[in-house]
Design a protein around this nucleic acid. Sequence first.
DNA 1: CTAATCGTTGACGTCAACGTCAAGGTCAAG
DNA 2: CTTGACCTTGACGTTGACGTCAACGATTAG
Lengths: 126, 126
Amino acid sequence: MRIGELARRAGVSTRALRYYEQQGLLPARRSTNGYREYEESDLKLVTEIRSLLTVGFTLEDARPFVECLRSGHGSGGACPESVEVYRRKITEIDDQIRTLLERRAEVAAQLAEACPGCALRTGGTR
Amino acid sequence: MRIGELARRAGVSTRALRYYEQQGLLPARRSTNGYREYEESDLKLVTEIRSLLTVGFTLEDARPFVECLRSGHGSGGACPESVEVYRRKITEIDDQIRTLLERRAEVAAQLAEACPGCALRTGGTR
DNA sequence: CTAATCGTTGACGTCAACGTCAAGGTCAAG
DNA sequence: CTTGACCTTGACGTTGACGTCAACGATTAG
């Protein structure tokens, strides 16, 4: 299939697909007129990339998953490199959550100080 | 005082101070040679900006606080516009936390599926 | 006089994942 | 032949808060 069809079926822009190719995540063979030609299996690659991006992965994070799929695995997360990325991302997310919790407490405290009686719902004022 | 001293005392770069001025947050009068001249009170403004930035505020978010301070209030968060920003930022932070929690659950689930037995510490596997 | 230190105004670079033209080639239908 | 739909490769724009030159003027110490 060509880039337009893959884009439609994957729910992404053609620009995104070209960008993935540029980043080495989605190589495509070319037909004689220079058009990119994709396999059915490429749809799965794009789907994998998309689902990883939506949970906060970068394209670089997604690379091991794509390579894992292309190496024949049914799941992109089955390879040890992917598992390592999973672990790292989880600790990153945990760090971010911790930071946000600290910030929330700090901001809520400043609010309480600047405007006593301005209690928020979530703050635990009961 | 001039920009270098203010920068040192506030713990920021001179570039940052010029940027704040450009954004209209930190106007400075000029001495005859064109150098920026700051008051003691400007140190407090910069300190306020910095503390807000470190908890995730943008410079735009910080604007009401700066104006509040310059209008004579001892605290930048005392004015109603600042309180409104406080509230909004707290809900933003809460949204971000929720998103991250969802992502963490999703990633942990994918990890568990791809690699059974790869339990994480925080996941609640007990 | 000269070097050192401070200041000034541009203006481009950073980081990610594309969006959005621009200028043009390809191909099937009418 | 001419739309029109599709494709190609650049290449700049986006977002925020500056970092990092470049090229220059001001001030002071020696």
